[in-house]
Structure formats: C-alpha cells, structure tokens
Design a binder for these strands. Structure first.
Lengths: 215, 215
DNA sequence: CCTACCGATCGGTAGG
DNA sequence: CCTACCGATCGGTAGG
C-alpha cells in the first residue's frame, strides 16, 4: 500500500522548488503589468497552473510575496551596479559615474518588470518592510553619490548638488524601462552609452576633458 | 408646503459644482497615494463626506473619474510648458530646452499628485481613453523635441538621439516628483535650474558656449 | 443626496 | 496540492 492516501497527500504537500520560482516569475510579470492591488492571487495561481490555496505552500501572504520580489530586485540591481565599477580605479570617478549610469539603464531595460515593481509598489509594504527596501535603495544611491563626490572633489566635475544629480541619473534609467522595447532600434547598451555620456557631460567642469571609457 | 418631500428631493439631487471639485481633489490625492486599484469609491466618498451612490451624481464611473484626472493633468502640464517658452525666440533653442526642463521639474514638484497619477495609471484606461492620453503626451514630447532638434540643426548641440534625450529629460522631472518635499532644502525653481543646466550641458556641442537665461 | 441592496470578487483558512 | 468555504469588500443600481 505505498500509494495510499497519506503518501499521496505527503507528495502533494511537498513544495517543489520549480513551482516557487514559477510563482515568483508570474507574480513579477502580473504585478508589473497590472500593479499589486490590481493583481489577484487567483490570477497568479491560474498563470502558474494551481489553485489559490496551493500558493500558500510557497508564500506566506500576498504582501510577503511582493516584498520578496522587491528585495530581490533591489539586491540584483545593487550587485550589477557594484560589479560594473569593480575594476575601475578610484581616481577615475567620471568613468565610474559613466559606467554606473550605463549599467543602471541597461539593467532597467533588460529587467523592466523588476524595476517597475520595485519603484511603483513601495507604498504597499509595511513600515518594517519599507525600511529594509529603503536601506537597499540608499546603498544604490551611495554608489552614484561617492563617484560624483570624488569627481567634484578632484575638480573634474562642477560643484553640483550631489543628491539632486544622483536622483536625476537614477530617474533616467527608471524612465528607460517604461519606453524601451526589445525590438526597438536601440539596444540597452546603446541607450546606456548615450545617457552615460549625457550625465557625465552635464556635470563636467568647464575646463575638463573626458571621453567615455568604452570609446 | 414649500418644504415638502419632492422639494427636498430635488434640492438633494442638484449637483453642486463645489462637490464635484471636492471629489476630483480627493480622488487625485487618494489615487496618487494608494493607486487607482488600491483606492475604493468608499474611501473617496468618505473623504468628501458623502455616501458612495451620491458620487454618481457627479461621475459616470470610477474609470471615467480617473480619465478626467489624467486628461486634466496632461493638458495642465502641456499648457505650463508651452507658456514657459512662449516668449523665447526660435533662434535660442538651448534656452527653450533649458526652460522646458525647468518648467517640467517645477510642475512635477508642485503638482506631484497630478503627475504621479498621470504616469502610473495609464494601464487602467480603456484603449480609447489611453489613445487620447498618449496623444497629449506626444504634444508634450514634441515641445522638447523641436527645441532639441533646432539646437542640433544650428550646431549648438551635439547630434544626440532626439527621442532618447527627450525621454531622459522628461524622466528627470517625473523622478523629482517622487522625492521633492515642500519643507526640503531646495525650492522647485532651484531644482529646475539645476536640472535645466545639466540637461543643456549634457547635449552642448564641444565648442559651444551657453549660460542659463536666468543668470 | 440618501438607504437598501446586488452579484462578483477579494485574500485567506480548514481540513484532508 | 486539492475542495469547500469564510467574512469582508468591491463597483454599481433601484428607488425615493
């Protein structure tokens, strides 16, 4: 009697890793398209091929599901940005800034669902959850901030307002996620190059010379 | 018997202009804060001091309410932008670009609820409604586009990608709406000046000279 | 502008 | 992983 009811129940209750990943993938897509409040657990369950109660084997609640997606999305972006300037020496702050802007644009284009959710749905989180996400955002901002501060300190950038400039640079990438299309005329790398150059030239000190590191 | 039931009914059914304006005002605030899908008509009614069915004296549906807000928001922004460059001659395209970026930033800071709703909730509209809003957006983009094209044609701006640059300039203003605070250290005008200068310098042709028209 | 009410749908639980 | 089901809430209507 190895196939009796209890066995089948245990098997059905054993969460599969692939299922969890499917849930996250579809939830991200649906949240990006219709918003958190505009997406029901029924829609997520249907996309995955499950009934709603089965989702609860893998998630604790709809809100925790959103939080997990937002945390992953921000960590992922932070990692990409940190890696993009890991090899650039500290004494080339404008190159660092250029590459950060570029990578930010590329990441937002390539993972636009991720960044749509990350930036739109922060209001849906609890205070505790939001505080953790904001802390991750601060780390991302600090990468830009330190590059720009160094550039100003070295005199290769004008003495611009650091925070305002960093927010602007980040907003450009977020904006790109809203209009970038995979079959459009420009690749994420090309768009990243264009914006990277514009941001750096926008802060360049009058006498300074600079050309993009890739060129 | 001038105060009988029929009279009171007629009086109660006569929509007041102030009430409609109150509904729009509170709906805008609540949609900006909690999103369209995350805001119930009950919440709007309560904020105004009515019961839900009374809203229907003033609106046709929740979605039409959203559409009206989005159309007004975009027309309002378009008007402000057009007015900001109305007095600037065509042969000063960089000044026009500067003032458009500046006014866009100022408008987004001063009416952040308006622009939050305008940019976040377009997915909630019907196809017909969305087409009309997109047409308004095109008009706004075209103001930036023609200034930038003229600057490139005159050789005072580098031959940048027009669409990409315009989207970036617009995104900066939208971003400002998310972090600007009334009691912060910078006024909308100051932020507008900073971004206006950065965008123009970002596209400035290497040999060209330019300083902001206000300075 | 209100009371009374509708069917539909929501996130989530009990229990196997 | 499912069926059966919960109370709460949704946008909207009837009717005065």
């Amino acid at each position: 009697m190895s196939n009796d009811f209890a066995d089948r129940l245990v098997a059905a209750r054993s969460p599969r890793r692939e299922t969890k990943s499917l849930i996250y993938r579809h939830a991200l897509r649906l949240f990006a398209r219709h918003g958190y409040a505009g997406t029901s657990l029924r829609e997520i369950a249907e996309a995955v091929g499950l009934e709603v109660p089965s989702l609860y084997t893998h998630i604790r609640s709809k809100r925790e599901l959103l939080y997990d997606l937002m945390e992953f999305g921000n960590r992922d972006l932070l990692d990409r940005l940190a890696r993009s300037v890991a090899a650039v020496p500290d004494d080339r702050p404008l190159d660092r800034l250029y590459l950060l802007v570029r990578e930010n644009v590329i990441s937002h284009c390539r993972h636009s669902d991720q960044t749509t959710v990350v930036f739109t749905e922060i209001r849906e989180l609890s205070d505790d959850q939001r505080a953790k996400i904001v802390a991750l955002r601060r780390e991302i901002e600090n990468l830009f901030r330190s590059a720009l501060e160094a550039a100003v300190a070295e005199g290769v950038a004008r003495p611009v307002n650091i925070a305002v400039t960093v927010f602007g640079a980040l907003a450009i990438g977020r904006g790109a996620a809203t209009w970038y299309r995979e079959n459009g005329p420009l690749s994420p790398e090309e768009i990243g190059d264009l914006y990277g150059e514009q941001v750096v030239r926008g802060v360049l000190a009058p006498g300074s010379d600079w050309s993009s590191p890739g060129a």
